[in-house]
Design a protein around this nucleic acid. Structure first.
Length: 192
DNA sequence: GCCAACGTTGGC
DNA sequence: GCCAACGTTGGC
């Protein structure tokens, strides 16, 4: 039994995600300052994380998490504005994330484009998340977890949304406010 | 800075 | 295919 050809990636159908970034390398404020408040999410060199990048769809909502920070915390929300395409840094020898084994004709590593949706007024630190019973199965909170791109369950997204509201809500970026006002949806409430 | 947990590499 | 060695991640 068990053909391997179409092995399913658990969580790949998720419409909610979390990405980690060390703020010393790229912070949510860097994203806020980026052109169009959009960045390509390059440099992912882990197969599981890459598979999740490939499962992302335009409009998917993404928690932005600061790792190796003080405190480590969820600091905002971004959204997918372009689906997976080859990561050029893998073919750039001087680049830190150069991968000589990746064939340009059949790229191993992909990236997506993410745009800032909003920052949280108060970041949600890891220890606060750990105290939520409904979040105990989150990949982020699993002991030893190092995945830098991971799916988030709809229920977990809701819990984190309420925590964010309780903690002071969100800080919209000026360039997005008109667009937001014109829309009847509230992205931070989730889209389900 | 420490170190546990993890993913990858390569010898066999 | 096994597994020890190694490099990296990331919380503390």
């Amino acid at each position: 039994m068990g053909r391997k050809t179409t092995r399913r990636i658990p969580g790949a159908e998720s419409r909610f995600w979390l990405v980690k970034s060390e703020p010393s390398a790229f912070s949510i404020d860097d994203l806020g300052k980026a052109s169009g408040q959009t960045t390509c999410w390059d440099g992912v060199r882990n197969y599981q994380a890459r598979n999740y990048l490939r499962a992302m769809r335009v409009g998917d909502q993404v928690l932005f998490y600061h790792s190796s920070a003080d405190p480590t915390a969820v600091v905002g929300v971004a959204e997918v504005v372009r689906e997976a395409y080859p990561d050029p840094t893998a073919f750039d020898p001087p680049h830190k994330h150069y991968d000589p084994k990746s064939d340009p004709a059949k790229p191993t590593w992909d990236m997506v484009d993410l745009r800032l949706v909003h920052r949280l007024v108060e970041p949600l630190p890891l220890d606060l998340l750990r105290r939520q019973p409904g979040l105990k199965h989150m990949e982020l909170l699993r002991k030893g977890s190092r995945l830098s791109v991971q799916p988030v369950r709809a229920r977990e997204w809701e819990i984190i949304s309420s925590l964010a509201e309780q903690a002071g809500g969100v800080r919209d970026s000026p360039s997005r406010m008109t667009e937001r006002r014109a829309s009847s949806t509230q992205p931070w409430r989730g889209r389900s």
